[in-house]
């Protein structure tokens, strides 16, 4: 039984989750939340649910975390600080690490043997499974997302001030 990887992921994700709630700046909190989402996607990768991990990264890290960060910026709760050299260096280092992992991940996937070696479960089969078994739920979910987007726009739009 190999518990090392899950325990490392638990520690990593728990620290990120706690920091997202306890950090002084909301911007750092939003970044920590994005890191927590990334940790969860690593959990899914480790558990063998690859497509769920990709969805997690695409929806949570790619959309929700960015949306939250945008809202934090709009609300203006973030601390505005002068650009410091250590923070800039840390940001550059983090960006370089993410870029290197991205390149390594892509090169790993391209170095894999032909995907037809694992015909049992592909994205097409997942899509067919969802459409065959959960078609109505998928339709309702699409309606929900559309109405949510419409509601969000209606709530957040700037009201035209009436002039007397």
């Amino acid at each position: 039984m190999d518990f090392i990887v899950p325990i490392i992921l638990i520690i990593f994700s728990s620290i990120a989750a706690i920091l997202s709630l306890e950090s002084r700046s909301l911007v750092y909190g939003a970044v920590s939340l994005a890191i927590f989402f990334l940790g969860l996607s690593l959990f899914f990768f480790y558990l063998g649910l690859t497509y769920l991990a990709i969805f997690q990264v695409a929806v949570y890290v790619g959309a929700i975390a960015v949306l939250i960060m945008f809202t934090v910026m709009v609300v203006g709760e973030g601390q505005r600080r002068k650009r410091s050299v250590p923070l800039l260096a840390m940001g550059l280092l983090g960006g370089a690490i993410i870029l290197a992992s991205f390149i390594m991940g892509i090169s790993y996937f391209f170095s894999l043997p032909n995907p037809s070696m694992q015909p049992s479960f592909t994205l097409v089969s997942l899509a067919r499974y969802v459409m065959d078994n959960y078609g109505l739920i998928l339709f309702i979910l699409a309606l929900l997302l559309t109405s949510a987007a419409y509601g969000a726009v209606a709530l957040a739009r700037r009201e035209v001030e009436e002039t007397a």
Partner: peptide, 30 residues
């Protein structure tokens, strides 16, 4: 596995909708 991924994807979709509406409410409250 396929059933679990389908359920989790639905949960992610609902969470995305919830986050969008919640953030819009927060912006309006602000």
């Amino acid at each position: 596995l396929s059933q679990a991924q389908a359920i989790a994807i639905f949960v992610i979709g609902i969470a995305a909708a919830e986050a969008a509406v919640g953030l819009a409410i927060i912006i309006q409250a602000f």
